[in-house]
Write a protein that binds this DNA or RNA. Structure first.
Lengths: 232, 232
DNA sequence: TCAAAAGTGTTCGCTATACACCCATGG
DNA sequence: CCATGGGTGTATAGCGAACACTTTTGA
């Protein structure tokens, strides 16, 4: 065993700081989260959120972005800080704080990153037991997502560029945990004006083809300037 | 000059971590924030948010609570974490992350704490130049408060136990930055059911006495269980 | 008696909701 | 021809927004 070298010295005690990343993806039916299988102790073999120690010359957001890129290959994505967890003994090795982010990615764009071998998507209602306090982190990420959806049309980050109204509805239902009337949902979404209807259609079921829509970011920016809320 | 002793050693570099506390108080007319005048470099003599280094055996919330107590004498209050700031050079001394909280207190209950001499309330629209990135922290605290008010009746944390409808309206107007029609505001608040009307009246202006109300926490708990949103 | 604060109710328009029918397709 | 999924419209109720008059009191 190598001798450990303690090269960094401080006048006062400093905690270690990591960032953890809750990566959400939508498979067209359910919300999923990307987990990795830990290769080292503690919790070796256990599933965990992607995370890592923050560098001294990077911001927390850059650190979280790097983890996202490592696990998904995505260079940019919607990513938001939502909480810093600071329970004293949350890591058995030393005092570790973690700054937690959630990311919204398009499942179909994720090729798999450097650590792809050990990364796997899990539906949110079927996650395995998690290492550390990661279940608590995941729970808070879900709750934050639910609240955030009232202020930003985050759903579109999870869908492909072109999507059907049914897909959009199922996504909202998955995030909010409720069921909407199909006709009312169509009317409301179209009336809000964030959607641009396309002429194209596509088969999702094999019964009938459905119209496609795309998100209208110009309209969204305009609404954001004037202040708005999405009601559900 | 004393020799500095570096007693804490780590294998990898660790950032210093502080908590900062945005303490909001309502004076009956405007929202105020409690600032302290820095007694030491850097930014000596500059106004800043109360803050301090996190202890190795306390959570971030405990650290923020301690600062709140030191500045206000309050042993408990509504306090919420809202963001961790991690810009690399935000402190000239060393790499310092800060976990930021906002607290809602009743101005009239604040006696002044240990550091009372250097602490002072400032109306939110008339704050002095702040040390470090504290203006950015304050701005985000305000924004978070505005969003949070849609999910929790946080306004009541800022008011005395018994308050008039006009006071409540002015508080909401101060937080949201809008004006409401007095009659509609009365009707809406009473209809929601979070207020218990009292028989007592009190003079706030010297024209006419107004009825007092108190917040009904039982009703709030009931509504929270069923899921609700405050609309404005 | 005048000005300012506070208390109260009605009307209107919009939007959320509930709800039903038709069409297209594949089996 | 039937089962399934998708597209569309209408009727109702409740809520938000606009709005005016009266009372009280101090100056």
């Amino acid at each position: 065993m190598e001798e450990i070298e303690y090269r960094y010295h401080y006048q006062y005690p400093h905690p270690a700081v990591t960032t953890d990343c809750v990566i959400f993806g939508f498979d067209g039916e359910r919300l999923n989260v990307l987990l990795i299988e830990r290769g080292i102790e503690p919790y070796k073999g256990c599933w965990a959120l992607p995370g890592g120690f923050i560098g001294m010359n990077q911001t927390a957001e850059e650190s979280a972005m790097r983890e996202l890129r490592e696990e998904t290959g995505l260079k940019d994505a919607y990513i938001r800080q939502f909480h810093t967890f600071s329970t004293v003994n949350r890591d058995p090795r030393e005092r570790v704080l973690t700054i937690a982010y959630y990311a919204l990615v398009r499942l179909q764009e994720v090729k798999g990153g450097d650590d792809a071998a050990s990364a796997q998507w899990f539906p949110l209602d079927a996650t395995p037991q998690l290492a550390f306090d990661h279940q608590e982190i995941l729970d808070m990420a879900k709750e934050t997502l639910r609240k955030q959806i009232h202020f930003e049309p985050i759903g579109f980050e999870l869908l492909p560029e072109k999507f059907s109204m049914k897909q959009l509805q199922e996504l909202y239902e998955a995030i909010l945990g409720v069921k909407f009337d199909r006709r009312n949902f169509y009317n409301k979404m179209l009336h809000i004006g964030l959607l641009t209807p396309l002429d194209e259609r596509e088969w999702f079921s094999n019964r009938k083809e459905s119209y496609l829509y795309k998100f209208n970011p110009e309209k969204y920016d305009e609404m954001k300037r004037k202040g708005f809320r999405l009601e559900f």
